[in-house]
């Protein structure tokens, strides 16, 4: 290693990082990369148009088309529908993630990241965390528009906050499905179609639109009862409006952990292979 010492002496160079990257640095790098997503949105806020308009369209359409038939009145239905839409729209909001990742890989941006001394996972974690803005947009749009149409939150603001926090945790976990799809799909154009295959049955085959699932055929009811989106929806109804929470919160959290445990390693593997 004598050569090394002479070489270090000849050029000014910052201290070499250790061979392994600490968790603290990975967290910091991930936050820097999350900032990248937010900076992108600052330059082109029109990217938030889907998470702004889609909740509005769904809210108005479903409320007035189904309200009277499902719950007797639109007002009564709104109290059921809005928590469900928070769950569904949060799932929808993750779908842009896969497309963005696929674009990044195609354009070579990830090659740059991979040539830097940062953890492999940092760009993926950063992208997921940076997308928090999309989740927040969904929550704000639905809360404001829902209130304007007559939705009344429950009286305990802490419970309401806990509800949104639960939705956020599940949103983060579900994001990894979108990341995985983005890495599996051969091109950015195919990501959307693949992501829909996960999102549609999960959000429509659930208690999002109807709190009472007993009129469904047996197989669908079974699926709906297992579906984590149903548990999230039921938990949100209890936390945002009122009523007993049951064990829906715990089941939702368990699903969140389960989803990340399965999808994160697959996503990392695909990423190492693709990028």
């Amino acid at each position: 290693m004598t050569t090394m010492t002479t070489m270090t002496g000849t050029t000014a160079h910052d201290a070499l990082p250790p061979a392994r990257i600490s968790l603290r640095r990975t967290v910091r790098h991930s936050l820097t990369l999350a900032w990248r997503n937010i900076a992108q949105l600052r330059h082109s806020p029109e990217k938030l148009i889907d998470v702004t308009l889609m909740p509005l369209v769904f809210l108005v359409l479903f409320l007035y088309v189904f309200g009277g038939a499902v719950a007797g009145s639109t007002h009564a239905y709104l109290q059921q529908l809005l928590p469900g839409l928070v769950a569904q729209m949060a799932m929808f909001a993750t779908m842009g993630l896969g497309t963005a990742l696929s674009e990044d890989i195609r354009k070579g941006v990830f090659d740059r990241f991979r040539s830097l001394p940062i953890a492999r996972s940092a760009p993926l974690i950063g992208t997921v965390v940076g997308d928090t803005v999309r989740f927040l947009t969904v929550v704000v749009v639905l809360s404001v528009a829902g209130t304007a149409l007559g939705f009344r939150f429950g009286s305990d603001p802490l419970r309401v906050l806990a509800g949104f926090a639960l939705a956020y945790v599940f949103y983060l976990a579900f994001s990894w499905i979108s990341v995985m799809v983005g890495l599996i799909a051969p091109s950015p154009e195919t990501v959307q179609g693949l992501a829909f295959m996960f999102v549609m049955p999960l959000t429509f085959g659930s208690s999002v639109f109807v709190a009472n699932t007993s009129t469904m055929p047996g197989w669908l009811e079974t699926w709906t009862k297992m579906n984590p989106v149903s548990h999230l929806t039921d938990a949100l109804r209890a936390l945002l409006v009122g009523g007993p929470v049951g064990n829906h919160v715990w089941i939702t959290l368990a699903w969140a952990v389960g989803i990340v445990t399965v999808t994160f390693p697959i996503a990392m593997r695909m990423y190492a292979r693709r990028a």
């Binding site: 990248r36 330059h43 082109s44 070579g108 740059r112 040539s115």
Partner: peptide
């Protein structure tokens, strides 16, 4: 490293 294709974030 500077690759064959500019690997920058076009939107930033």
């Amino acid at each position: 490293l500077t690759g064959q294709y500019a690997s920058l974030d076009e939107e930033l």
